[in-house]
Simulated scan of single mutants.
Amino acid sequence: MIIRFFHQMGSPRYFYNVAGKLVPWFMVSFLITLVFGLYYGLFVAPPDYQQGESYRIMYIHVPSAWMSMFIYVVMAVSGLISLVWRIKMTEIVVISSATVGASFTFLALATGSLWGKPMWGTWWVWDARLTSELILLFLYLGIIALHSAIEDKRVAARAVSILALVGVVNIPIIHYSVEWWNTLHQPASVTKFDKPSMDISMLIPLLTMAISFKLYYGAVVLMRARAEIVERERNSRWVQEMVEQEAK
């Protein structure tokens, strides 16, 4: 059953139809979790004993940083599948994810800068975590630019898949930079069970926001993938029939 499902999802027509049914569910779930996470993070969670109210930007910054790495890993895995098995849908997932990943990376850098000013006394430092995250943004932008520069979309897909695979080495650098080097960026406290760790009243809205951002990514990447499918398959019979039906 699982093999059959993945085989079907490799069909642009099948993927287009399934994605159209999933998008509304993703969007509604995103809005519900977003409202819950923001409300509890901004108004219910207690102030931090050291940072006071300024820490609340964490509920945007941390999930954005997580998503910036998560999406790039998704792109790298999809790129590997497209290079090895030449599945068209994984090619589409790579490029459909790039803009969303770049947006989350920029948001992580911007909110990190806003958070860093009161904590560190400066908007930016060439910290290992910040610098590697900035490199990640350049990788996203490079993938977007490379795909736009190559007219043949199958050739472009192979090129961006290779770049995504090469750039994935930056992900463990981002994740472990605070452990490998002496950096200003604080170490992880979400996954720690010893002290100091995050209080449950702060952790729940943070994880809710992380789920919300993943639901948003799912909705947007499916919508972008559907648009890319129509563009690539515009001369196929099923797309022409669909357009004729919608025109009636």
Rank of each mutant, 00 (worst) to 15 (best):
Ile81Asp: 05
Met89Gln: 13
Thr122Tyr: 06
Asp152Cys: 05
Gly167Phe: 14
Trp180Lys: 01
Asp127Arg: 11
Val160Glu: 00
Ile174His: 02
Trp180Arg: 12
Phe138Ser: 11
Leu83Arg: 05
Ser96Cys: 06
Lys195Phe: 15
Ser197Trp: 11
Pro172Ala: 03
Thr105Cys: 15
Lys195Trp: 15
Ile174Gly: 04
Thr105Ile: 05
Leu134Phe: 15
Phe138Glu: 04
Ser197Gly: 03
Arg129Glu: 08
Leu134Glu: 09
Gly121Phe: 01
Lys192Ile: 09
Ile92Ala: 04
Ala98Arg: 08
Ile162Gly: 05
Tyr176Cys: 04
Val77Asn: 09
Pro196Met: 12
Gly142Lys: 12
Ala108Trp: 14
Asp127Gly: 08
Arg158Ser: 02
Gln186His: 01
Pro196Gly: 11
Thr122Asn: 06
Leu107His: 05
Ile87Gly: 08
Ala145Val: 10
Val178Gly: 07
Ser132Trp: 15
Ile162Trp: 04
Ser161Leu: 13
Gly101His: 03
Leu139Lys: 09
Ser189Glu: 15
Lys153Met: 09
Asp152Ala: 07
Arg129Ser: 08
Leu184Pro: 01
Ile92Val: 02
Lys192Cys: 04
Val93Asn: 03
Met89Ile: 14
Ser161Met: 11
Ala149Cys: 09
Ser148Gln: 13
Leu139Phe: 12
Ile92Thr: 01
Tyr140Lys: 09
Ala157Lys: 04
Leu141His: 02
Leu107Asn: 00
Leu83Lys: 03
His147Ile: 01
Trp85Arg: 01
Ala188Leu: 12
Ala188Cys: 04
Val74Asn: 03
Ile92Trp: 01
Glu91Asp: 12
Asn182Gln: 06
Trp123Ala: 06
Pro118Arg: 14
His175Tyr: 15
Pro172Thr: 06
Pro172Val: 09
Ile135Thr: 15
Ala157Asn: 03
Leu80Pro: 02
Trp115Tyr: 05
Asp199Ala: 15
Lys88Ala: 01
Ala110Glu: 07
Phe106Gly: 13
Met89Thr: 11
Arg154Trp: 14
Ser103Asn: 14
Trp181Phe: 04
Gly121Met: 02
Ser78Tyr: 10
His185Tyr: 08
Leu83Ser: 07
Asp127Trp: 07
Ile173Tyr: 15
Leu146Pro: 05
Leu184Tyr: 12
Ser189Ala: 15
Lys117Met: 11
Lys88Gly: 02
Gly121Ala: 05
Arg158Thr: 01
